[in-house]
Amino acid sequence: MDNRSQKKESSITQALRQIQQLNSKIAVLERQHQDYVQKQQNLIPAIAEICLSPMQEVQALRILIHRGEAACRPYLRSVLVKQKKTSK
């Protein structure tokens, strides 16, 4: 093989390696996204159960959508605490 075809082959090999790396990163991101969506979906029944007023539900869903599941949980806890205080 001459020098030119060796360079061409190494370029192709390098491109294929980069494609494989990108595919691996894409797979990781897809799994992370699925986990994220699953966590959000798991929280929706809790929102419906915990929130007594439509305004609380809307607020909880806004937090869930814009800031994520981790930010929504403290809000739901605060709603529960307020409910316990009012029920006493």
Rank of each mutant, 00 (worst) to 15 (best):
M1K: 09
M1Y: 10
D2H: 00
N3C: 14
R4K: 09
R4F: 13
S5V: 09
S5G: 07
S5I: 12
Q6K: 07
K7N: 03
K8M: 02
K8W: 00
E9C: 07
E9D: 14
S11F: 08
S11D: 13
I12D: 03
I12Q: 04
I12T: 11
T13F: 03
T13V: 12
T13P: 05
Q14N: 12
A15Y: 07
A15C: 02
L16H: 04
R17E: 04
R17P: 00
R17W: 14
I19C: 01
I19P: 01
I19A: 11
I19Q: 01
Q20N: 09
Q20V: 02
N23V: 01
N23Q: 07
N23I: 07
S24R: 02
I26P: 05
I26S: 00
A27F: 10
A27E: 10
A27G: 00
V28G: 03
V28A: 08
E30F: 12
R31L: 08
Q32Y: 00
H33A: 15
H33Y: 10
Q34R: 14
Q34G: 13
Q34F: 05
Q34M: 13
D35M: 14
D35R: 15
Y36F: 11
Y36P: 00
Q38W: 06
K39N: 13
Q40N: 12
Q40S: 06
Q41M: 10
Q41A: 05
N42M: 07
N42K: 05
I44D: 06
I44H: 10
A46T: 04
I47P: 00
I47H: 03
E49D: 13
E49K: 15
I50M: 02
C51D: 04
L52Q: 12
S53C: 03
S53F: 01
M55D: 06
M55H: 08
M55T: 11
M55F: 05
Q56M: 09
E57Y: 05
E57W: 04
V58K: 09
V58M: 07
V58N: 09
V58C: 07
Q59A: 06
A60E: 04
A60G: 02
A60Q: 02
A60V: 06
L61E: 13
R62K: 06
I63C: 05
I63K: 06
L64W: 04
L64N: 07
L64T: 03
L64P: 08
L64A: 12
I65N: 14
H66M: 07
H66K: 13
R67Q: 15
R67A: 14
A70D: 14
A70Y: 02
A71D: 09
C72K: 06
C72N: 07
C72Y: 09
C72F: 09
C72A: 08
C72E: 11
P74H: 00
Y75K: 13
Y75D: 08
Y75E: 08
L76V: 01
R77N: 12
S78V: 08
S78F: 05
V79T: 02
L80G: 13
V81F: 11
K82A: 15
K84R: 12
K84V: 15
K84C: 14
K84P: 15
K85L: 06
K85W: 03
K85R: 03
S87H: 13
S87A: 12
S87N: 12
K88V: 14
K88L: 08
K88M: 13
